[in-house]
Amino acid sequence: MRKIKELIIEKTLMTSALITIAVTLGIILVLSIEAIQFFSEVSIFDFLTDTQWTPLFTEKHFGILPLLSGTLLTSFIAISVALPIGLTISIYLSEYAPKAFRKAVKPLLELLASIPTVVYGFFALVVVTPFLQGFFPDLAGFNSLSAGIVMGIMIIPYISSISEDALHAVPASLREASYGMGATKLQTAFKVIVPAASSGIIVSIILAISRAIGETMIVAIAAGQQPRLTLDPTVPVETITAYIVQVSLGDVQHGSLEYRTIFAAGITLFTFTFLLNTLSYRIRKKYQEKYE
């Protein structure tokens, strides 16, 4: 009796765990089935090379490049903000800051990551854009610059927190060895500690990039809804995610070609983040072994 009960419990628990596999399969299936139907009407070649994305207009174009450029542009700006600041914070907290300061500041910074993204979108549109317009009068009301900057602020804790963990995990004996030879903290940090923690730092950067690429509300609110193949950060653009939101808010018929565009856009997004996540998982696994 007891054995059967134990077995039933184990199988129930296992089923719960298997749900996660079902979710992944579900995502892949849903995206690819709809995308395959989409590509039976639109050639993959056009999708990848056409420089216009106008599925909701009378004259339809289905080139993903404008959405992709919008996504990459906003992500690039975000990383340019978050990487230097996040990395500096992690080195400062791990190598310089007094323990009590570090303990107090880390959760406060992590609070930045817990703020709903719609709130950041508000901040970008209502505060940062008008502020930047004071310096650049030509800046459009919707633009990738303020969306990117605010997104950068949002992902600072991703970089600072994970990198700090990695730096902190470097054995103290290496620090002592370096100090003992007359190195300053700065030299020790950059010549010994950062190289030793490099895999953890790289993981944090990859995760931040993946987060930026998939971020939706900030760009949907502040970057605009005009798919445009450009590197100009001052004009409105549209990201893959913002496009999906735009279509979802409208009245698009289930099963129509327009409806399928969001899955084609979705599978593009999923592919990018999937590759990045897999890469970071690989590096993390290797790095765990290094310290064990």
Binding site: P171, L174, E176, A177
Partner: peptide, 10 residues
């Protein structure tokens, strides 16, 4: 200084 546990840099 030489420490208790050998601590070469990686």
């Amino acid at each position: 200084m030489v420490f208790q546990k050998p601590n070469p840099f990686p």
